[in-house]
Amino acid sequence: MDVLYFAWVRERIGLPKERVETSAATVRELVDELRAREARYEAAFADLSALRVAVDQDLADFDAPLAGVRELAFFPPMTGG
């Protein structure tokens, strides 16, 4: 699936988008996989309470299942308006 990063999450990971192949069942499992992979992911995902996740462009929670998901995005709380 495509994984997108925005704002300081993008800056900490160092790229806006990447293709990730995973057998993780939930968003949380994928986050754990990424954190174990490299320090920059650990830096971005250290505090999940500071992050939001969107699954196929809808806000979701970290226990959301990944089966059939095409696009996942991680970002800080939004500051629109």
């Binding site: 925005f6 704002a7 969107a54 806000l59 995005a73 970002f75 800080p76 709380p77 939004m78 500051t79 629109g80 308006g81």
Partner: peptide
């Protein structure tokens, strides 16, 4: 609209 755009529309200000 303003309350929701502020916290639920995916914009980030720097």
């Amino acid at each position: 609209l303003m309350d929701y755009l502020k916290s639920r529309a995916p914009f980030w200000k720097k």
